[in-house]
Amino acid sequence: MAEGRFTVVLRRYGLYFAWIVSLIATGGSLYLSEVLLFAPCDLCWFQRIFMYPQTIILGMASYRGDKNVIRYLLPVNIVGGCISLYHYALQKVPAISEFAVCRSVVPCDEDYLNWYGIVTIPLLALIAFVLIALLLWFGRKEEA
């Protein structure tokens, strides 16, 4: 079965691309909180807990070419993505805010960013988790 060039590239460089996405997500998160001074809520902290270590782990795995790490990071991205999805729903669906789990000073339904009425910080985190999961999924197989 002939595979497309795109699939071959994803299989060969999936770890590297996933690492780049994690770097961008971590850097963006730090920029928002440390430069723009957006205080993270409880759910933001949980998303960070699932994203930040991946930057180091994926960097080391990319350097060593170790695809064994994929089976451990896929579940991390699925859980992080579920937290992001819940957080996004909390911001966009008023009925869900009754079930908010935030206990900190910063409410979880607060929108620091709201581009075009759709793009918020939890959506950006969700996109990063999904991208990393997809890149790892495609990169799990050996090159053809």
Results as ranks from 00 to 15, higher is better:
44 C>P: 05
31 Y>A: 11
36 L>D: 13
40 P>S: 12
31 Y>K: 02
56 I>T: 12
34 E>L: 12
42 D>G: 05
63 Y>L: 13
37 L>W: 14
45 W>Y: 13
55 T>Q: 08
30 L>H: 13
64 R>L: 10
66 D>R: 03
68 N>H: 06
48 R>S: 05
39 A>N: 09
33 S>L: 05
31 Y>H: 11
45 W>N: 13
37 L>V: 06
47 Q>M: 15
65 G>I: 06
32 L>E: 15
66 D>N: 15
57 I>D: 11
30 L>R: 07
34 E>P: 00
43 L>G: 05
51 M>I: 06
45 W>F: 07
48 R>Y: 09
33 S>D: 11
63 Y>E: 06
52 Y>G: 00
35 V>R: 11
57 I>A: 11
63 Y>T: 06
64 R>Q: 14
59 G>Q: 09
59 G>Y: 09
66 D>P: 01
50 F>K: 02
30 L>D: 11
37 L>Q: 14
56 I>V: 15
31 Y>W: 15
38 F>N: 04
44 C>N: 03
68 N>I: 00
37 L>G: 03
67 K>T: 10
32 L>S: 14
53 P>G: 08
49 I>N: 08
39 A>P: 01
66 D>G: 01
44 C>T: 02
35 V>C: 10
56 I>M: 11
40 P>K: 08
58 L>D: 11
41 C>V: 00
51 M>G: 01
58 L>V: 00
48 R>P: 00
66 D>K: 03
38 F>L: 01
50 F>P: 07
57 I>S: 05
46 F>L: 14
61 A>Q: 09
63 Y>V: 02
36 L>H: 09
48 R>K: 08
68 N>P: 00
52 Y>F: 08
45 W>I: 04
66 D>W: 05
54 Q>L: 10
64 R>N: 10
43 L>I: 05
31 Y>R: 02
61 A>T: 03
65 G>V: 07
30 L>G: 11
40 P>H: 09
47 Q>L: 04
49 I>V: 14
58 L>Q: 06
39 A>D: 14
